[in-house]
Simulated assay, not measured.
Amino acid sequence: MELSNCYRCGKLFAKAYRNICQDCARDIEAEYTRCADYLRQNRQATVIELSDETGVSTRQITQFIREGRISVANMPNLAYPCEVCGEFIRDGHMCENCRRRLMNDLERAKQDNSNANAASDKHSTGTYRISEN
């Protein structure tokens, strides 16, 4: 049996299938229940409002959404911040603008790398031989 420290509270525990201890797992389930109960009565809630009313961190609420435990389908105002710019999004980690900018940057880096390789190939056209006399 592997022993590990809980990433949430730091307590040493026998790791089974989670990276958190039983106490923290119980706390997270209680937080989820508070969020789900609140959302059943307040479908127009935002993540900030949900956090303020339940005492659950926005980070944990975002995790519930990403895990699919809280669905944003019937919650028109339930969104969380893009990890890059902070714009509110309803899925993934980045907004469309940041995702597009990242793809453009990757494409430009790939093109720069291709141009650098072509330039180095152009400068090294000769071969060398060592002759034995």
Rank of each mutant, 00 (worst) to 15 (best):
A14W: 09
C85A: 07
I65E: 06
G126P: 00
S71G: 05
Y17M: 05
I70P: 00
R43L: 07
E107N: 11
A118V: 05
M103H: 11
A79R: 10
T46R: 03
Y17E: 08
C35P: 04
C98W: 06
I89H: 03
Y38F: 15
P81A: 08
R26P: 00
F64M: 02
D112Q: 14
R43S: 09
A14E: 15
A116D: 08
S120D: 12
A119R: 13
Q111S: 12
N97W: 05
A73T: 07
G68I: 07
I61A: 01
A119P: 02
P76C: 03
A45E: 02
R59F: 05
C35Y: 05
T33L: 11
R40F: 04
R34W: 01
E96T: 12
S124N: 15
E67A: 06
C24R: 03
L39S: 00
R90L: 03
Y17P: 01
R129E: 15
A36Q: 07
A79N: 06
L78K: 02
Q41K: 13
P76I: 03
A36D: 09
N5G: 08
N133C: 04
E132L: 14
I89M: 04
Q44N: 10
D91E: 15
Q41A: 10
G126Y: 13
R99I: 03
E96R: 11
T58Q: 10
V72E: 01
R18G: 03
K15C: 02
R59N: 06
D52G: 06
R129C: 08
D121R: 13
G55Q: 05
I70C: 02
C6H: 09
F64A: 01
N113G: 04
K110S: 14
I20F: 05
R8M: 12
D27Q: 14
I61S: 02
N5E: 12
E2M: 12
G10C: 09
S120G: 03
V84H: 11
A118S: 11
F64S: 01
A36P: 00
R26C: 06
N115W: 05
Q41N: 11
E107G: 02
C9P: 09
S4Y: 09
R43A: 07
S57T: 15
R43G: 09
R69V: 01
R69Q: 07
A14H: 11
A79T: 04
R101S: 14
L3V: 10
G55H: 06
I20D: 06
G68Y: 06
I61V: 08
C6G: 12
N104S: 13
K122D: 10
L3R: 09
Q63P: 00
G68D: 08
T33R: 14
N19D: 10
A79M: 10
L78Q: 01
R100M: 15
S124D: 15
E2P: 14
D112V: 00
S124H: 15
A45H: 05
A73E: 13
K11W: 01
A79G: 13
R18L: 12
D91W: 08
A25H: 08
E87P: 00
N97M: 07
Y7T: 11
A25K: 09
